[in-house]
Design a protein around this nucleic acid. Sequence first.
DNA 1: CAGTGGTCTAGACCACATC
DNA 2: ATGTGGTCTAGACCACTGA
Lengths: 255, 255
Amino acid sequence: MSVDTDIRKADRPSKPLYARMKEDLVRRILRGDWRPGELVPSETALAQEYGVSVGTARKAIEELAVERLVLRQRGRGTTIAKADERSKPFRFYRLHYGNSVQPIFSVKYLSVKSARASAAEARALGIARGSAITRVERLRGHDGIPAVFERLAVREDLCPDAAAIIGDLQPASFYTMLERSFHIIVPHVKEQVQVAMADERDAEVLKVAVGSPLLEVTRQGYALNGEVVELRQMRAVPSVHYSNTIGGPSSPPAG
Amino acid sequence: MSVDTDIRKADRPSKPLYARMKEDLVRRILRGDWRPGELVPSETALAQEYGVSVGTARKAIEELAVERLVLRQRGRGTTIAKADERSKPFRFYRLHYGNSVQPIFSVKYLSVKSARASAAEARALGIARGSAITRVERLRGHDGIPAVFERLAVREDLCPDAAAIIGDLQPASFYTMLERSFHIIVPHVKEQVQVAMADERDAEVLKVAVGSPLLEVTRQGYALNGEVVELRQMRAVPSVHYSNTIGGPSSPPAG
DNA sequence: CAGTGGTCTAGACCACATC
DNA sequence: ATGTGGTCTAGACCACTGA
């Protein structure tokens, strides 16, 4: 039976039933009981399995849906959300070139290699200094113009053989690849935006002068269990801007 | 009776009952039936008034709560959210100095005056060129160091006598002032972040060299009815960064 | 067609804030 | 003590999808 611990007699002081049920469902998703794109049991089936009313099961599933972990479709059923469904329009990729509305940039891989985590990387990733990581350099362009230079780092303990796999696939979507190749779901990211000065590598790749100002976005990608799995630094030419919207009908929860 | 149109026999094809009820509640908030901080009728009272079940009324109110228009407190009741409740930790103010977690900056008003909207301002505000607006300059500092130079513009047709009122109050929170002095609620903003070069005024105020790179955040503030009421440009010294979090438990809906 | 999620109802009990 | 929102139940009907 898939419910290891009876959610009805847990915790002290006990959380609401639907909350415990939700946590258990997350545990099962994390364990890989259902893969992204796969159908989850129906409301009534889950209600029966957990011994709760449909309304309660519904509330648990509903919360997973607003967190975009799960996709509900009337008549079809509920599926585990795939990376592209989770990150719909601009959720993750908020960089735009000039006035263009399209966030679409071509991607070119510049390098993919295994390395050892620096002190800063180790701290940010929550691993020991010197642990194995994979470093990736990508360049995004707009109409043939270099626009965004990305440096990524992922934990090799979570993504074994990442260098080879990434080098081979050169995926347009990093999160889809993490999902398909390593069963890692990244439902949550934190970003900081600031001004940076171009170093020599930036200058070379982006065709700008060393020391010229760039827009820098630093990102930490969190896995379902809360661990940081990915670090990303994006340095963009000054004509690129970062856009964000806060509040309003149907905006997701803020951290 | 406060329900002008019977929400039960509306629209074609008709939206769900709870959605129509929600829209009607928004209409009443917009009309000012209840002021920020004031108690809204209870679930059961509203259910009775609209002739729906408590569960349905509940769903309508619940949606207003996730949009932060309304604040629900068990044992107390439901109130119209005040500006500071709506913009809780960092929802609107996402600029930080260096590594400090606190987004707290002192505020100093530099100038407040009436003016005519430029072509760009008029377009962004959805008003005619040359319409009356109020322009405000503020400086935010961190530990006595100039950090963020803000230029604001608000529509004077919506905020009559704004120049005098703002000059008089010099409010720390602009949105709280809009709410209290003009009954305008701003539940939604859009922001763009980019690199800018310091002009002469920036240089003078922020104590940097003309032409040196700054972090610029441009913001449009939307009123409840969807109109743009406020334009804001924030130019910050390079040690300031903009932070954002996407997804995860209890993140608001993304635009 | 059977099965899904979406809406809606009517009731119960509870934890909590206020007076 | 009263009234609030929060949880939970058990049912009904509907719109839609897919075989």
